[in-house]
Structures are given as structure tokens and as C-alpha cells.
Amino acid sequence: MSHAVIASLSGFSLLPSYTVIGLTLGGVYALAATGLVLIYRVSGVLNFAHGAVAMFSTFVAYQISVVAGVPSPIGLLAAVATGAALGFVIEFLTIRPLAGRPPLTKVAVTIAWLLVLQTAAGLIWGSTGYHRPVQLVGSNGFTVPFTNVVVGYDQLTIFLVAVGLSLGTSALLRWTSLGAQMRAVADDPQAARLWGIDVDRVSAASWMIGSAMAAVAGVLITPLLNFDTYSLTVLVIDAFTAALIGRLTNLPLTVVGAILLGLVQYYPKAFFNQAGLSELSTFVLALITLAVVFRPGLAASRGRG
């Protein structure tokens, strides 16, 4: 790093407000990562197009709410519908026919979807430039008592909605009949089929719910970054990193990992003035996680044979 890096002790005074932003961002990552883990656990496919699905759905919300001026909750609903529809199409048309093929073939299909969605979005909405965010809640806020930290109502809403939905998914898996079926399919698809579970239907449900979560995450993150098609598509690496912390299976740990990632991405910005620091933090955290969490021969090669 060169002269552009300016270290300053005054960065410490920024930490409280950066904590707020980091937590908000972490909440969004938690939501995206939960969707990713849900899809991976149930269908055995690591979805590299997760960010692209989020991006495309978000741009649908952008078109409806920002360009056409329809109230943003309707835009959000449209994004959710788009995400679920994309999830269904990807699963039904391109994952289901690949049953029994190697995991890397399925990865290649999701990569193809990434390319298709990314290019299509670029053609429709332009691949660069400033886009006004889809603002669900006003950005005014309140001061935390006894401190001078300001929390925006939008930030609070984003955090609560995102973490609520993530934990809600854990609850769904644990306590509902669909959740039980999903866990059965995740553990052993063949055995689940013998028990009379419609494995295809459950798998499609996981793709639809997981992709809808990605869509919500995409819409929620728009006020937090200068978003374009590329920056939302690469959201997938943040979701991956959080999911890796949860070993790609554990949802509560994934939420914790996501919040950790949000903070780790933001804290360095208090001390250094340098572009790309978030990406550096993500990379380092991903490396550490891969080194510490994954031992040879663990869960890693899971995928329906």
C-alpha cells in the first residue's frame, strides 16, 4: 500500500457510527447467505448466480419504484416475485435435468445463469452509472441515548427485517412440515423419496425461497452502496464468505458470520482511506475461514451424486 493510505487515530471516534453501518450491511449479508445455504443444503448446488438473481430482482424493484414511482413496498414485492420466479426457472429447467451429474456441472450451470442475468440486466438498465436506491423507509433517524451515535430508521429496519427473515428461515426448517421435508431431503434425497417426500417439489421450494431472500437482500442493500449490475452480482462472494463461516450448513452461525463480515468490511475504513478495502477484508476473512473451518474431507464435497 502506498501514500494514499492515511492512518489516523481519529478513526476511533468513527467506530460507533461505523458499527451501525457494519451491522446493517451484515444483516443484509445474513439474508443473502441464508438463501444460499438453504439452496445448498436442500438441493446440493452451490449457487454462483445467487448475487445475479439478487441483482436482477433488485433492478425490477428499481424499475417499478424509482423509475416508475410506484410505492417502494410494491417494488419490493415485485422483486420477491421475480426472485422466486427466477429460482423456480433455474431449478426446474436447468438443475432438475442435471440430477446425477457431478457438482461442478451444476456449478457451471449457475455460472451460465450469472452471465445471462448480468448481460441481460446490462442491456436493459445499463451496466454502469448512478442509480437512485429503492428507499423503503425514510433515512431520518434517532440518536442512541447517552451517546452521539445516530441510527437511521432505514438502517434499523434493514437490520431487523434481514436478521428476522434469516432466523425465520431457521425456524421454518425446524418447526414446519416443509422444513422437516427440506431437512430430510438435505440429509438423504433417496431416503426422503422412499418416505414419500416429493423431492423435486421440496428442491424447487428451496430455490424459490432462497432466491426470494436474495431478492430482498438486494433491495435492502441499495441505500448502502452505489449499486450497479456488477456490484450486486458480486454480492455472491459476501454471501459465500458468510456461508463458509457457517460451514455451508449451520444457519445461526451463518448469520453471526455475516454480521462479522459486515463489521470487518467497515472498521478498516475508519482508519485508512483506500478504495477496495471491503474486498480486501472479505478476501482475508474468506481465506481464514477456509483455513480454519474446513478440514480435509469434511462436508465440502457434498452434492447429490
Partner: peptide, 29 residues
């Protein structure tokens, strides 16, 4: 040495974004 092909693929995404969005960004090096 220790990762399956799938996780290594995830790592290559991280490497690509690290290179493209940090290493080659003006001001880094």
C-alpha cells in the same frame, strides 16, 4: 491441499474479486 474442488472454485471467485477490486485499484499498488 485441503479443500474440495467446489470450495476451491469459491476461492477463485474471491481471488478474482480481490485482484480486480483491490489489487489493481488506483492507490493500492
Amino acid at each position: 491441499l485441503r479443500l474440495s474442488g467446489l470450495l476451491l472454485a469459491v476461492l477463485t471467485v474471491a481471488v478474482a474479486l480481490f485482484t480486480d477490486r483491490f489489487l489493481l485499484v488506483t492507490g493500492t499498488w
